[in-house]
Amino acid sequence: MNITVCVKRVPDTETRIRIAASGNEIDEGGVKYVLSPYDEFALEAALQVVEEAGSGRVTVLSFGGDATKESLRSALALGAHEAVLLKGEPTMDGWATAQVLASELEGDDAALVLFGVKAVDDDQQQVGPMVAELLGRPCATAVAAMEVGDGVATCWRTVEGGQEVVEIDLPAVATVTKGKYEPRYASLRGIMAAKRKPLREKEAAVVEPGFVVESLEYPPPRPEGRIVGEGPEATAELVRLLREEAKAI
């Protein structure tokens, strides 16, 4: 069984983000990029499913610029069999990205197309379900664990306060979240082998974005800490502030 995992290169979550002079994009200077962490869960899920099946290939697919090759190579080092880069400049428009990816996936024989539940840069959670719609395939979102059988996949979905078990007919699309799939780390053998694995580059389909970022703003600065008193007598005031002002409890 073959699985395609769609991945996105995003700023490292530990990077300090600065807004560029244009005011509607981030300043990319000094930003470190990584594979979006949820995409790592999706890749791990794909590798485990294929390993358990004892056959099949895992392809990683990404839409991005030249630098995205580095992220794809790291996915190959973890065990993916091949990589495809759709060269272009993705925007914040999830619908445009979904169309680009779907045009590549239409002829794909993968029984499963996996995504991370969201990209940690824009948090939109759009692209996976939109690709499913464009391909006319069922989609399970926020999948924490899966078992793939003959023509059907059982997925454990993380929902408020519990888990929901669903079955989807293959071929299908799923978005993966934190759960069973703790990402592995690359072995030196994996890194060496990745250099010999195919990484194909294609020009991405051109789709005009219908979604434009007007402006970006920083979160309000955190106010200075405040000492409300000392000892047990301060507790009541602290609880009142936490409840009424911070709305934390």
Binding site: S74, A77, Y185, L188, I191
Partner: peptide, 8 residues
């Protein structure tokens, strides 16, 4: 790339 894998 090697450093990133070791860091991981």
């Amino acid at each position: 790339e090697l450093a990133a894998a070791v860091r991981d």
